[in-house]
Simulated scan of single mutants.
Amino acid sequence: MNDPNLQDFIDLSAELTGLSAKLLAPAVDPINLPPVFFDTAQQGMGTEAFSKLLNLYVPIKGQPHEQIASAILGSSDPQIAKGARSIMKLWLLGSWYQPYDQGTAKEHDIRVVSDQAYKESWAWKIAQSHPMGYSEYHFGYWAEQPPTLKQFTGVDAKEGQQP
């Protein structure tokens, strides 16, 4: 991964989703969704707004998660805040939720990025499930205790819970 903008996008996505950048963009990745998601977000937000989002993120990279979330999701620029929310949905659901009118795309348009994006979306992993009609599990797996959430996401389920 030679493009620093792509790495910044992955790091920002990790902040927005709460998932590790290493999980979003593993070293060995035959599916290679990060560049697809990068292009999708850039096209969906527009080059100028997408650049503003990354330019807002880069100087605060490494700050506490709460500060990054506040700066990005609470931005006074609605394109940045709405675009960041669409990026979260992109990783979690494998679909682009158009945050505002951009080119021929209208606000609230939804499009599945690809069958691989849908199949590999994080919502399935977080729910410890799989999309209808597709599973890498063996027949009868549903009768067994599922793997822990930490095995799927790297995050202990109790870490993210409020007291």
Results as ranks from 00 to 15, higher is better:
residue 32 N to T: 06
residue 30 P to N: 08
residue 17 T to K: 09
residue 153 T to L: 11
residue 108 H to R: 09
residue 33 L to K: 03
residue 28 V to G: 00
residue 113 V to C: 00
residue 153 T to W: 09
residue 141 Y to N: 09
residue 49 A to V: 06
residue 59 P to H: 03
residue 21 A to S: 09
residue 151 Q to K: 14
residue 72 I to E: 00
residue 132 M to I: 15
residue 137 Y to M: 15
residue 8 D to R: 07
residue 155 V to F: 07
residue 138 H to V: 07
residue 48 E to S: 01
residue 112 V to T: 13
residue 78 P to Q: 08
residue 112 V to P: 00
residue 149 L to K: 10
residue 78 P to H: 06
residue 156 D to R: 10
residue 25 A to L: 07
residue 84 A to D: 02
residue 82 K to I: 09
residue 146 P to K: 05
residue 157 A to I: 15
residue 118 Y to N: 02
residue 63 Q to D: 13
residue 35 P to E: 12
residue 50 F to G: 01
residue 156 D to N: 13
residue 12 L to K: 03
residue 73 L to D: 02
residue 3 D to T: 09
residue 97 Y to Q: 06
residue 6 L to E: 09
residue 14 A to L: 05
residue 33 L to I: 04
residue 104 T to Q: 11
residue 75 S to Y: 07
residue 84 A to R: 01
residue 154 G to L: 14
residue 111 R to H: 13
residue 159 E to W: 12
residue 122 W to E: 01
residue 52 K to F: 06
residue 74 G to C: 10
residue 156 D to G: 06
residue 117 A to H: 04
residue 102 Q to D: 02
residue 154 G to K: 10
residue 156 D to F: 11
residue 35 P to I: 14
residue 29 D to C: 13
residue 47 T to E: 12
residue 40 T to C: 08
residue 52 K to I: 11
residue 7 Q to A: 13
residue 23 L to V: 04
residue 46 G to E: 08
residue 150 K to D: 04
residue 151 Q to M: 14
residue 110 I to E: 07
residue 48 E to H: 00
residue 155 V to R: 09
residue 144 E to Q: 03
residue 38 F to E: 04
residue 15 E to M: 09
residue 125 K to V: 03
residue 137 Y to L: 15
residue 148 T to H: 07
residue 11 D to V: 06
residue 33 L to S: 01
residue 82 K to V: 01
residue 133 G to P: 02
residue 81 A to Y: 11
residue 69 A to R: 07
residue 32 N to I: 06
residue 91 W to M: 03
residue 163 P to C: 00
residue 26 P to I: 05
residue 142 W to A: 12
residue 145 Q to C: 06
residue 22 K to L: 11
residue 40 T to M: 05
residue 33 L to N: 01
residue 72 I to M: 02
residue 111 R to K: 12
residue 62 G to Q: 12
residue 154 G to Y: 15
residue 78 P to L: 00
